[in-house]
Design a protein around this nucleic acid. Structure first.
Ligand code: FES
Ligand code: FES
Lengths: 144, 144
DNA sequence: TAGAAATAGGATAAAACTATCCGAATAATT
DNA sequence: AATTATTCGGATAGTTTTATCCTATTTCTA
C-alpha cells in the first residue's frame, strides 16, 4: 500500500512528535533504533520531510529532528504520505489508466474510487497528535 | 495500490472473459494490444493466471487464452489480485510491522484496517462478469 | 509429415526502490 | 581554535519489479 520510505517516514514523524512535546530533539540514530529502520535510508527520508517543512532539522552537535509542538495536531497523515509517495494513491486509476477520469473510466472505477476516497479521507482526518498519543499511552507500537 | 502485473492481469482477464462469452479464444498479441501492455511481460502474467486455474491456455496454432464462460460470473477480482500480488494487501500492516496484530497494533491500525477491509470486501464482491459487461456496453474502457 | 502459429519457460536487461558509504558542512563544547 | 557530534548530499550497491529476447514445445493445417 505505502512504500517502505513512507512507512518509515510516518513512524519517524510520530516518534519525533512524541519527543517534541517534551522539547526534546531526537537524533537520526535514536529514530532509526526506535522504529527499527536502516539509518542511512531513514536519513534520506527525514531530509525529504524537512524539505517539505513537515519536520525541522538542526545540524551539528546537539542537533537532530523536531516538530513545532503547537503544529503537531495540525499535521495530517496525508501530508506525510503526499510528501514521500506523491498523490497517485489519491488520484491515480486503480488499473493504471493514464488518468482516473469519470468520462473515461476503467471497469473498476466506481468501486475503486469509493475505497480510494475512504483512504484519502482517513489520511486527511488523522493527525500526528492522535497517533503520538497512542504510542505514549502504550496502546500502539512502532516496531515489532 | 496494485502492481503493474496485477493491473495487466485484471485487464487481460476482463478482455478474455468478454471474448469467451462468444466462444472466442484470444491470443497474447491481441490481449496486449487491447490492454496496451508489453507483450512478453503480459505472457508471464497470463502463465501465472493459468497456473492458478483462473484462465485456460492452449498452445499451438489457433491457441490462446479463454475462460469457461459459465465460470466467469464466479471469478472474483480478489482471486486475480491474490494470484498475482499475494495476500499482503488484505493482511499486512499498513506501517510494515511484521504482522498486523490486534494485540500489538501499529498507530494506524484501527483506521487502516477499516480501509483495508473495505478494499477486501470490494475485491471479494466484484466478479469478472460485471466488469466485462461494462466494457461490452461501452461504459468503461481498458486503455487510455 | 512438414510447416506455420501459438504458448512455455529460461536467460538477460532496464528501471525503480531500498540500502549503504563517505566526505562536506555545521554547530556546540572544551 | 580545535575537537566532537551531528545532519547533508553525492556516489555507489543490492534487491525487486518491470520488460525483453530467444529457444523449446505444442497444436493445427495443408
Ligand atoms: S478510471 Fe480507473 S479508477 Fe477511475
Ligand atoms: S498493526 Fe498495523 S495495520 Fe494492523
Amino acid at each position: 500500500m505505502f512504500s517502505k520510505a513512507c512507512e518509515y517516514g510516518i513512524k519517524a514523524s510520530i516518534f519525533i512528535a512524541l519527543n517534541s512535546y517534551e522539547n526534546k530533539r531526537v537524533s537520526l540514530k535514536a529514530i532509526a533504533k526506535e522504529i527499527n529502520s536502516p539509518e542511512a535510508f531513514t536519513a534520506k527520508i527525514l531530509q525529504d520531510l524537512a524539505r517539505h517543512n513537515i519536520i525541522n532539522s538542526t545540524k551539528g552537535a546537539h542537533g537532530g529532528f523536531e516538530i513545532d509542538k503547537y503544529a503537531i495536531s495540525s499535521i495530517k497523515l496525508s501530508q506525510i504520505v503526499n510528501a514521500i509517495d506523491g498523490d497517485s494513491i489519491y488520484k491515480g486509476c486503480g488499473l493504471g489508466l493514464h488518468t482516473c477520469d469519470e468520462e473515461h473510466p476503467c471497469p473498476v472505477h466506481d468501486k475503486f474510487k469509493a475505497v480510494r476516497d475512504e483512504l484519502k479521507h482517513m489520511l486527511e482526518s488523522t493527525n500526528l497528535e492522535e497517533l503520538a498519543l497512542d504510542i505514549k499511552s502504550g496502546v500502539a507500537f512502532l516496531k515489532t
